[in-house]
Simulated scan of single mutants.
Amino acid sequence: MNKVYLFIVLILTAFLNSGNAQEVSEMKFSDTSHYFGVFSRNQGVKTHTFKFENVGTEPILITRVKATCGCTATEWTRSPVLPGKTGEVKVQFNPKKFSGYFSKKVSVYTNQSAKAVDLYISGRIQVNNKISDEFDYFIGDLKADKEYVDFGVVEVGSKPLTKEIRLINIMRDTVWLKMGNSPKQLAVEQSRTEIAPGGNCKLTFHFDPTTANEWGSLDTLIKLTIRRSVKTEVRKLPIKLTVIDRFSGMDKKQLSSAPAISFPMADKVLLEAERPGQWKSVKLELTNTGASELLIRKLELESENIQIKKYDEVVAPGKSGKIVLAYRQPGEEELVDEQLIVWSNSPENYRLNIPIRIKREYKN
């Protein structure tokens, strides 16, 4: 009876030791899948190195590595990897004969188990598209070929302009794109709202200067809502546009009967503020020295320290018009320089720049 009992104990011990050995002899990869993203064929072979650590108590020897197709080449650590040490499996993918989405499996076999460890590579190949050269900017999870849409300086009456921005989805899942309201001076087209992985979308903007009824800087931001299955984000796409009227179509007779804007004050308006944060008002006068009505089309002022309260939109020949401003001295700064831009129908000076300096006034 004792001999039978001892035999059973020995069998159980051997079995348990064998199980423990399998459990502690472990190949631990830092990652088992890699996504190359979206790329073109002409970017050549893609390479990723999978690194692993032997977290067990026995040496690990990679006996063979098997890829699912000839498009994938492999290299790996040939010598035994001791406990606590690291090794690697390098995988190379040749996109020459592929297009669209791909996914490949690489199986790693070792001396520790008959079961392989599977590694995966994937990506999307864009044919005849130089993504790395053309799509340099990010708008949320989309890549773009431009950071903003720039119409530049456009003259009233010139030919209609069209600008485009192209977007590409480099994510693994579908992206839905929704554009907010565009300014009334722009006509906007969107090629698609649903962008599949690797797919693209084109935003087209049209501006017709022959119908322009606003002047000066018309810069704006268009809201883009970018939605994926895992998140939704909002981005702003800048649109840069300045409209001017040089009155280039006017002849000498028309020019002689045109209005003329004049600002008789000094080259720079000097304002004095007594205390930080205290608002004061000031009146500026513009004179029409021309032969017909002067139309003040627009005032531009980007300042936290000056506000435009009111102004005369029409000034008769030989008369003066007023611009009322409110201003303050911010913080403890000694001097603050700002600029007021007056857009008018004066051919000789359709864009009048008025520099303004706010100076802190000291009182005992």
Score class of each variant (00 low, 15 high):
residue 85 K to D: 04
residue 329 Q to E: 08
residue 43 Q to G: 03
residue 113 S to F: 03
residue 166 R to L: 07
residue 278 Q to C: 07
residue 208 D to Q: 12
residue 189 E to H: 08
residue 223 K to P: 06
residue 141 D to R: 03
residue 288 N to E: 11
residue 141 D to W: 04
residue 95 P to F: 08
residue 262 S to Q: 12
residue 267 D to C: 01
residue 19 G to S: 11
residue 183 P to C: 12
residue 182 S to G: 11
residue 138 F to Y: 15
residue 197 P to K: 01
residue 341 I to F: 05
residue 322 K to L: 14
residue 28 K to M: 14
residue 34 H to K: 09
residue 263 F to N: 13
residue 188 V to N: 01
residue 196 A to Q: 09
residue 174 T to M: 10
residue 85 K to V: 04
residue 287 T to A: 15
residue 189 E to D: 13
residue 184 K to E: 06
residue 105 K to S: 00
residue 234 V to P: 05
residue 9 V to G: 00
residue 26 E to R: 15
residue 283 K to D: 08
residue 212 A to S: 14
residue 291 A to R: 15
residue 37 G to E: 01
residue 185 Q to W: 13
residue 108 V to A: 10
residue 137 Y to M: 09
residue 264 P to N: 12
residue 127 V to A: 04
residue 2 N to R: 10
residue 111 N to K: 07
residue 163 K to Q: 07
residue 17 N to C: 12
residue 268 K to G: 04
residue 340 L to I: 01
residue 288 N to L: 04
residue 316 A to I: 15
residue 145 D to V: 14
residue 122 S to T: 14
residue 66 K to T: 13
residue 154 V to L: 06
residue 240 K to L: 03
residue 25 S to Q: 08
residue 280 K to W: 03
residue 78 R to P: 00
residue 240 K to Y: 05
residue 275 R to I: 01
residue 286 L to W: 10
residue 40 S to N: 07
residue 65 V to A: 00
residue 61 L to E: 00
residue 101 Y to H: 13
residue 220 T to A: 15
residue 299 L to N: 03
residue 110 T to M: 06
residue 247 F to Q: 02
residue 206 H to S: 10
residue 87 G to E: 00
residue 34 H to W: 14
residue 283 K to S: 08
residue 170 I to G: 08
residue 78 R to H: 14
residue 157 G to N: 13
residue 242 T to Y: 04
residue 361 E to Q: 09
residue 80 P to L: 13
residue 323 I to E: 00
residue 295 L to S: 10
residue 122 S to Q: 14
residue 312 D to C: 02
residue 99 S to V: 01
residue 197 P to L: 11
residue 152 G to K: 05
residue 329 Q to S: 06
residue 196 A to F: 12
residue 23 E to W: 14
residue 336 V to A: 10
residue 215 W to Y: 09
residue 168 I to W: 10
residue 220 T to G: 08
residue 132 S to Y: 02
residue 53 E to N: 10
residue 179 M to Q: 10
residue 276 P to N: 13
residue 257 S to M: 09
residue 360 R to W: 05
residue 286 L to C: 01
residue 57 T to Q: 12
residue 55 V to R: 14
residue 347 P to G: 06
residue 201 C to I: 07
residue 102 F to T: 02
residue 352 L to P: 02
residue 162 T to N: 13
residue 37 G to V: 11
residue 31 D to K: 11
residue 17 N to H: 12
residue 319 K to H: 07
residue 210 T to S: 03
residue 306 I to S: 00
residue 217 S to P: 07
residue 292 S to G: 08
residue 189 E to W: 11
residue 182 S to C: 11
residue 284 L to F: 06
residue 195 I to G: 03
residue 340 L to V: 05
residue 337 D to F: 07
residue 190 Q to T: 15
residue 160 P to V: 02
residue 283 K to N: 02
residue 89 V to K: 10
residue 278 Q to V: 15
residue 143 K to E: 02
residue 352 L to K: 11
residue 300 E to W: 01
residue 148 Y to G: 01
residue 215 W to V: 13
residue 185 Q to A: 04
residue 21 A to K: 13
residue 283 K to V: 01
residue 101 Y to N: 00
residue 30 S to Q: 06
residue 343 W to M: 03
residue 152 G to L: 02
residue 14 A to N: 03
residue 147 E to T: 08
residue 164 E to M: 08
residue 105 K to Q: 05
residue 165 I to W: 07
residue 335 L to K: 14
